[in-house]
């Protein structure tokens, strides 16, 4: 298989509740969706601060991500959300959603499930047709990542929120963002997690 090279190279994972789920080599700036969510921890582990997609996002909004956090407007507590509406180019999305991930020192995949549920609920509430989530783990300096556990936690967060939402919704596409270099491995981890979740479903409920 050829390595994907552009943001159009979204790799499908599956579908739940009418929502297509994919992994794509995007970040919160480049994801061409209605709502682009980005995980933000209370601080970065590296003394150099955020890198990668999170740094790209912060720069695209004039440093607002780090400043709002530094000034206490956004504390990055687990599940906390702050929406930035109508961001200017180069942000492709109509809305940026900062999602609190808590303290990176005590990070666990369970925090991702909380963050994903919060992001999904907000996307549904806002009537988004497409949405994405960039967890910002590597970008925040978290070096040791259990890819299978991360994928499972994010999928659980997404599917549980879709399942529990009490109203009809417009969402048709959810994209999990990853770096281009990690796309194939991330897709494989999500595909395995999705298959594992499908096996846990009651008979006749498998997608």
């Amino acid at each position: 298989m050829e390595e994907p090279t552009s943001s159009n190279d979204a790799m499908p994972i599956g579908e739940w509740a009418g929502v297509g789920i994919a992994v794509a080599p995007n970040d919160a700036v480049t994801a061409a969706v209605d709502l682009a969510a980005a995980g933000v921890f209370t601080h970065e582990l590296s003394p150099d601060g955020a890198v990668g997609g999170l740094r790209h996002l912060d720069r695209a909004v004039g440093g607002a991500v780090m400043r709002l956090r530094g000034d206490g407007v956004f504390n990055a507590a687990p599940g906390e959300i702050l929406a930035l509406s109508t961001p200017r180019l180069p942000v492709a999305a109509s809305t940026i959603l900062l999602v609190g991930m808590g303290d990176p020192e005590s990070w666990s995949p369970a925090m991702l499930e909380t963050a994903m549920s919060a992001a999904t609920n907000e996307a549904l509430r806002r009537g988004a047709v497409s949405a994405s989530f960039a967890p910002s783990l590597l970008d925040s300096g978290i070096a040791v990542i259990d890819a299978a556990g991360v994928a499972m936690a994010m999928l659980r967060g997404l599917l549980s929120a879709l399942d529990a939402y009490p109203r009809r919704f417009d969402l048709k596409l959810w994209v999990f963002c990853t770096g281009a270099a990690h796309l194939t491995a991330t897709h494989a981890a999500f595909a395995r997690a999705y298959a594992d979740l499908a096996r846990e479903m009651p008979p006749g409920r498998a997608p």
Partner: peptide, 22 residues
């Protein structure tokens, strides 16, 4: 959207205002 978001416990800022603050 802002009304629904804040009602659910979220925060909402115009992105240009956020950039100006920064």
């Amino acid at each position: 959207q802002a009304i629904r978001s804040v009602h659910a416990g979220g925060k909402h800022l115009d992105a240009d205002v956020a950039t100006d603050i920064a």
